[in-house]
Design a protein around this nucleic acid. Structure first.
Lengths: 211, 211, 211, 211
DNA sequence: CATGAATGAGTGTTCATTCAT
DNA sequence: AATGAATGAACACTCATTCAT
């Protein structure tokens, strides 16, 4: 009610999300450097000056995209690992599927490829992404793998390395989708790709008696 | 013969390769957009105007870089599969290690990440790269996996999917090295990374009796 | 009466002065062009929109700042010359010291440098300042010099020129303080600077027998 | 001959001076901050990009203006003081008249007012100017005053203070000319102004027996 | 063939000004 | 009266491309 009575206020509160949504689309589509703030503002339906009312600049806009888009999902993932009660194989399977649902197949799916492409030219953004996303994501994987090893479900692999080895195919699925895959170079059905990956990886991790 | 007799002629013929070599280094280091043609020309020891005598512009230079870069990539590793006589696990291990030795850790290592970053801006080139490099690489993996399944060494996984699933960690190792890894965001020792990957993947592929 | 009875009214009447006071501080500190109206409004404790209720824009604000700033400048030092009874050297000494005490070292000290900096962008205002401030200030100097000459204390110098020649070091002391002196480029202790100036100037003006 | 044979070369050598001349005019006319590099380039008859072939940016352009315009004149002044053989009063008179001839009444005359106006907003430029111009100029005055005192021609005034006290009227003559004087607020004939100033100052400095 | 001087379009950022509430 | 969200023009600096020599 009050919101409808004060359209300016409602608008003001919605603006940051509208802007980060527009920015996400364009960053993914054109890359960070090639995205013009004019276009971001236009896609959000405001002028370029307005963008600066809400964000300090291009870098801050990028960080906000990550902060609003990805960080909450990682936090949800942390909640999952905290409370999951089944087998560790099932937990790993669930975690990766959730990640694919919420990030991979969503509008955020282009972010990993974006970061890989731009990291060297924007080391400050890379450092932020590393801290806000990669470190936290690895922590989730770390906890799952350790849980499995401690419970005797997984073999005693080198956890720090396995974190990335096991997540790599998931990332590559996404990277492909937003690079050569977007040029008509074919690709995989995500479902069966993840099935095959988890099939091999979980069997590769499993101790003798497990499934 | 004539080349040796006329140093200027030899120089003239070497120019395009010198320019693409300089461009490859800089594209890998800074990305396509952030590379200045001034710098490419300077690194090749010519003036910027000269560059335009050999290439129509920045885009044409990029295409030449990729097309020149892939030929050596393909020459490696082809004959191995034909003649290998040991177990298929050992063949896969050898193939991947060879690829890392000859390509991943060489000067060409930056090409895959570069291609991934720029694919959307050069779709025709991406299609060409897909056809000339990726398809042929997949064929090698396909033959290894089929060989393992036919000989009862590997489980009957979905081969087309497994090709990419199993190669993905190798590619990610390389991509990382040329993106966030270059920003001090951590990374892995290639040897132990590949060890861990092959350990998990080969155990995941193996039929009951194998190692 | 009404003002005291209605605080909002009183506030409303005080607003322009609060705004010009804030603007004077910032104009002196940063210069006209580099002063942002956001900052002026913030320092006056109002919003930027409010500023436009009282002034037509940045130029109008500047004009108000100068016009308001000069009135107190003029009130000082007028009666001194009329009533002074000692020697003219002493009168000149006193006049200049008073000027420095009341204006140069006060909050108004930044006005002359500000006016000099912006005169060309505000020529009408410069003409007004010339008439309202400079002409009157010169009149004081003129009377002192003529008094000295008529009483045989000063040599018969060209009065109109000497007015500015003798006042110039005083102005420069002030101008320096608000320009390069504020950048750590050195400066003088006002007391000894004025001492040295008056020592030289009064000896230079003096007829043979005087001190 | 060669110059005529290679107009590009001749042009290239003339460009920096053409650009600094255009920049000087505009800096004096509009101030440093308000001068657009587009206008500087246009006045020099080139495009903005060309300006950047010769100068690293606006600051460097400003420094070049000072370096080329004022520093050589100060060096000439140093030569004068080194070799002058007459009385110190005559030396001071000559030095100030030369300064007026070469700087005050030339296109460079606007620089002191320019620096005073912009110093606080461009402290780096102020520091450069202080080092390149003010320090050296004071050194000239210091040497003249010390010479006069040592030779018994000048009284033993506080030299460091007298340097600025005596130069102040010269600077004010110039500051006026480029600020309120440019708005039709009157002013002095430089010749008689300097005469009056030197008359008073030299008499004020003189020991009993001197002229 | 080779050069390098010259160009000018392009973009992140700032801030005076407006106006709906 | 007062607000503050929104605007858009303005400018320094970059660099791919051209072309006279």
């Amino acid at each position: 009610m009050e919101a409808l009575a004060h359209p300016r206020q409602r608008r003001k509160q919605a603006r940051p999300a509208e802007l980060t949504a527009a920015a996400l689309e364009l960053f993914v589509e054109k890359g960070f450097a090639a995205t013009r703030l004019d276009d971001v503002a236009a896609r959000a339906g405001v002028s370029k000056g307005t963008l600066y009312l809400y964000f300090d600049g291009k870098d801050a806009l990028f960080k906000a995209v990550i902060q609003e888009g990805i960080v909450p999902i990682l936090e949800a993932g942390a909640g999952l690992v905290d409370t999951f009660e089944g087998g560790s194989a099932e937990l790993l399977r669930t975690l990766i599927r959730e990640w694919w649902q919420r990030i991979g197949s969503s509008a955020l799916g282009g972010v990993p490829k974006l970061m890989i492409s731009e990291a060297r030219n924007f080391p400050e953004l890379a450092a932020y992404y590393n801290e806000a996303v990669i470190t936290r994501g690895r922590e989730l994987m770390r906890r799952v793998l350790r849980r499995g090893i401690e419970r005797g479900e997984f073999r005693a692999v080198d956890v720090e390395t396995a974190i990335d080895v096991i997540f790599a195919p998931v990332l590559m699925l996404l990277i492909w989708r937003y690079s050569l895959g977007a040029c008509g170079c074919g690709g995989h059905d995500p479902e069966s790709y993840l099935d095959t990956h988890l099939d091999i990886a979980l069997r590769g991790l499993a101790t003798g008696e497990a499934t």
